[in-house]
Design a protein around this nucleic acid. Structure first.
Length: 321
DNA sequence: AAGACTGCCAACCGCCGTCTC
DNA sequence: CGAGACGGCGGTTGGCAGTCT
């Protein structure tokens, strides 16, 4: 037997919201807070499903929503985070203050995805569709893909731990618009909260163990990858974060090809010529040069991603030089 | 001028994880 | 411990507006 519908369908309005409905919802939430969404429509005098009210509020009426055109900086952020996280719009939205996951999702589907596809880049994998990346004669792309996957897993684990902590510390009213992002492993400190001072996420031993146990079912290299960085992640302080970035040097060199500056090329001018240059697809024997250039771009690119994800820097700070 | 086509985005749908009893 | 309630998330759709023919 399936779940009962979230609300009685009969008599409930659907479709676009009228200004009057918006006003009612807004007024009610401003005065009482949303409380239980299911109970809200009746209390607010709305012929709507609670779910519909929640959606309207979170995607449109909330006062801290920024509407309108996405800036170049925001586009960069979306593309870079999508490369890391995939279609995890809510996670991406946490790094874009005042933007909703729905808006980001729409923007990706209607603009960015098409732009990538037009340039011959698979919007899902962020790799060249033509396969040029995997036919460069070395295993860089394979490494890169693996590394990207690792990063995604790593970030996923972080987000899960973050969400968990947010739940555990609801009373502490963590500001969800300021996502924690730098992992710090602690000892047996299961209830530890992120400290307001550093805005760091501290992963308790239990959370970490849970993640680890999941990983055990995967490739050993997954765990090795994480372990390798754990030492650095466990350290505190900005100088250690720099150590971490530095330690990524080796990893970055394996990243050549994946996302090789495509953010820049997307934003600077979305034509195939640019794409070819950035992807080192030129057929005139300048591959060596463009590989070097793209190595450098990769470092900048992924440094940007890491810095953004590890939001020691403000989310709006330029990830690319 | 009008019908066809396309792009965009607000809103809906259904699934999933967590909470509560 | 299991079932139902609830909120959140991502995929999809419907309708409007703009553009093309």
């Amino acid at each position: 037997m399936g779940r009962s519908p979230c609300c009685e369908k009969i008599g409930l309005k659907k479709g676009p919201w009228t200004p009057e409905e918006d006003q009612k919802l807004l007024a009610y939430i401003e005065e009482h807070g949303h409380g239980s969404w299911r109970a809200l429509p009746a209390k607010a005098g709305l012929q709507r499903c609670g779910k519909s009210c929640r959606l309207r509020w979170t995607n449109y009426l909330r006062p801290d929503i920024k509407r309108g055109k996405f800036s170049l900086q925001e586009e960069q952020t979306i593309i870079q985070l999508h490369a890391l996280l995939g279609n995890r719009w809510s996670a991406i939205a946490t790094h874009l203050p005042k933007r909703t996951d729905n808006e980001i999702k729409n923007y990706w589907n209607t603009h960015l995805k098409k732009r990538l596809a037009k340039m011959g880049i698979d919007p899902v994998t962020h790799k060249s569709i033509s396969g040029t990346l995997t036919s460069t004669g070395d295993d860089k792309s394979a490494k890169a893909a693996a590394s990207l996957s690792h990063m995604a897993q790593w970030e996923s684990a972080r987000l899960e731990a973050e969400a968990r902590l947010a739940r555990e510390s609801k009373v502490a009213k963590i500001d969800l618009d300021s996502p924690t992002s730098t992992l710090t492993f602690t000892g047996s400190n299961s209830g530890m909260l992120p400290t307001p001072r550093t805005n760091r996420l501290e992963v308790s031993e239990s959370n970490f163990a849970m993640w680890q146990s999941d990983e055990l079912e995967g490739e050993e290299s997954d765990w090795q990858f994480f372990s390798k960085h754990q030492q650095v992640l466990g350290l505190e302080g900005k100088e250690k974060e720099e150590d971490f970035i530095g330690c990524e040097e080796e990893w970055f060199t394996g990243m050549a090809g994946v996302g090789a500056g495509f953010t820049g090329m997307l934003l600077d001018g979305s034509n195939e010529h640019d794409a070819s240059e950035c992807w080192g697809e030129s057929s005139n024997g300048q591959t060596e040069h463009s590989n070097q250039a793209s190595d450098e771009e990769d470092k900048n690119y992924w440094n940007g991603v890491l810095r953004m994800v590890n939001s020691e820097l403000p989310p709006q700070s330029p990830p690319l030089v």
